[in-house]
Design a protein around this nucleic acid. Structure first.
Lengths: 341, 341
DNA sequence: TAAAAATGCGAAAACGATTAAGTGACGCGA
DNA sequence: TCGCGTCACTTAATCGTTTTCGCATTTTTA
């Protein structure tokens, strides 16, 4: 393996000169730089990152914490896309990403210990139970951190714009003539709270009254729970004209229940999801949903984190909000059109 | 940050002794070892991995190559599960995993250069176009490698048992009374070849004649292609009683086409998928499919690779084959029962 | 009892880079 | 001519480990 020493010998300069030339120091002449760089390329020099890290305390490696209670983790398409965004942006900026776990060779350790061992320059946290003590410890460990879809006191966060997302969806439904809108929201989290707030506010702004029976809770991705909520809604004397689900998986589960009651989507009742995963598109009818920009969020998170790593002083905006967009399928009926008919 | 030096001072021994004690060398007395270890724990010592790597050339970090032409990559649930398996097993054995990319800070580099820079102890390759020159280069780079779902000349590979998978599926269909079985296979790859071979062989063993029109090709996850193939099959004078799709996504796409022709699944025609992803379960009717043991494959791959890293001499089995299992949903009719009726 | 062998530990040299401080040559103004 | 500042480079220390070799002791063997 070629080292700076080899280049130094080949160029008849000192290793210091080689190092500085390669790193663009100003006290090396342009000619020397050119010579050194040419030689380095010729010899196929690759810097030894361990040595660099040992000396500079920078690994150009960022850790990513990506687990959750339900353990759906990566199998959730939305998070898979977030990860992909992080990866591609980090790569562009010269950083690698590696997973954070809480054990190493049989021994249980904390997340922050893991990060210290691996000497991550920074950490991105996503898709996790943010109340877990270990996560809190990590957040307070002093290492540069960006969180996704959750706001901590002192961290930079990248959020999907849940307020605008629900607003857009509701307004779309309103425009399609829907007034009796049922809202099934997820279990408690900052994401859920934003969505609930936005639902109430938007409905109020539109002057639509909310029937108390129309609002219920169902854990994300809980198909059985969604089925249950759906059945309850279908039994109401005054059925909603549309049901909004907390995500696409539950929307599909609910849609199946609706169909099994002999009802047609969207003619008898409309349905919306959230996330915009692949399955919402191939479902029959295609689910109208809010497509979250997972990829964009990942990129933003990586950019922010690396910015933070490079200049720890600069205070960045505390919270970045990434908008999604309504993906219209065939699961929502146009009630205006019906009237015209 | 606490170093061996600090421990040495605190224990009144040399750094050499501390290092040896911590690493279990035999020329250190048990008492000294105990004292040193206790002190290390007390001070919260964490080894500097960069220094270790610099000295030993081992990073305890393995790279993972996880891209493909279609760029579905991680969003494919099967691969997400494989990754999860790799991660958990690697973690158990004391290794981290980080993604391999082909650029670093703007500069395009090859996969193998990336691995050299990051000094991965080993590499797992999955979900990729194995014919790509860069991949071939990586495989031949001398670094310990395990491939998933593909066999190279000299590498260890972990394969999903596609032969047994298709065999099990076909035999299941046969047992359910199906004889006119259509087989839509994926585009060319070693996986596809195994499946095709197994299909023909099993059908032959069962003494079932294969109608030429019943076999066609469709790229994996190509919903449009699947729709097209399905339409063709439905137009045949003698329709198959069951259509086998190359994966669950195409199966669902095909099923939608079948439904839109006013046909019922499974009464009019049966359908099977492959993979056993979540969508196949919540589809109505649930798709009968072959669930691949992605998690198990990931674990096996990690175990093999780390074994290979630890003792490069030992020749392991060249290829590990992990069985999946038939996941029966409601998409396949029991023709025997129909007759009894 | 003396020699040989085993035991337990330490000194010091790496590993491959970065970087503060130092050095010599040169030009320039006074 | 002297002094000073620049420029371009070198020297050498350093990061935190591992590991070879050597050196005392102590124990075993002859």
């Amino acid at each position: 393996m070629i080292s700076v020493k080899d280049i130094a010998n080949a160029c008849n300069v000192s290793v210091a000169t080689v190092s500085k030339a390669l790193n663009g120091y100003s006290d090396i002449s342009e000619e020397t730089k050119a010579v050194v760089k040419a030689k380095a390329a010729e010899l196929g020099y690759i810097p030894n990152m361990s040595a660099v890290a040992l000396k500079t305390n920078r690994t150009y490696n960022i850790g990513i914490l990506f687990v959750d209670a339900a353990n759906t983790g990566l199998t959730h398409e939305y998070f898979a896309r977030v990860l992909e965004g992080i990866r591609s942006q980090a790569e562009l900026l010269g950083y690698s990403i590696t997973f954070i776990t809480n054990r190493i060779g049989g021994r249980k350790i904390t997340y922050s210990e893991y990060c210290r061992i691996r000497q991550f320059d920074g950490v991105i946290i996503a898709c996790i139970d943010y109340s877990e003590p270990q996560v809190v410890e990590l957040v307070n460990s002093g290492i540069p951190i960006v969180t996704i879809d959750h706001i901590f006191n002192d961290t930079i966060s990248v959020m999907s714009d849940n307020v605008k997302g629900v607003k857009d969806l509701v307004e779309y439904l309103y425009a399609m003539g829907h007034r009796r809108i049922a809202f099934i929201h997820g279990d408690d989290s900052s994401v859920t709270r934003d969505r609930i707030t936005s639902f109430y506010r938007t409905m109020e702004q539109l002057g639509v009254e909310i029937c108390h029976d129309y609002v219920s809770e169902c854990r994300y991705h809980d198909t059985a729970g969604a089925a249950k909520c759906t059945k309850k809604l279908l039994q109401l004397k005054e059925r909603p004209t549309c049901i909004m689900y907390p995500d696409d998986i539950t929307a599909i589960s609910g849609a199946n229940v609706i169909k099994s009651h002999g009802l047609n989507i969207p003619d008898d009742i409309s349905v919306t999801g959230y996330d915009g995963i692949r399955y919402s598109v191939i479902y029959e009818p295609q689910i109208t949903t809010l497509q979250q920009a997972g990829d964009g969020m990942g990129r933003e998170a990586a950019s922010c984190l690396i910015e933070l790593i490079r200049k720890p002083k600069t205070t960045l905006k505390k919270s970045y909000v990434i908008e999604g967009k309504v993906l219209t399928g065939g699961s929502v009926s146009n009630l205006n059109a019906t009237i015209v008919r």
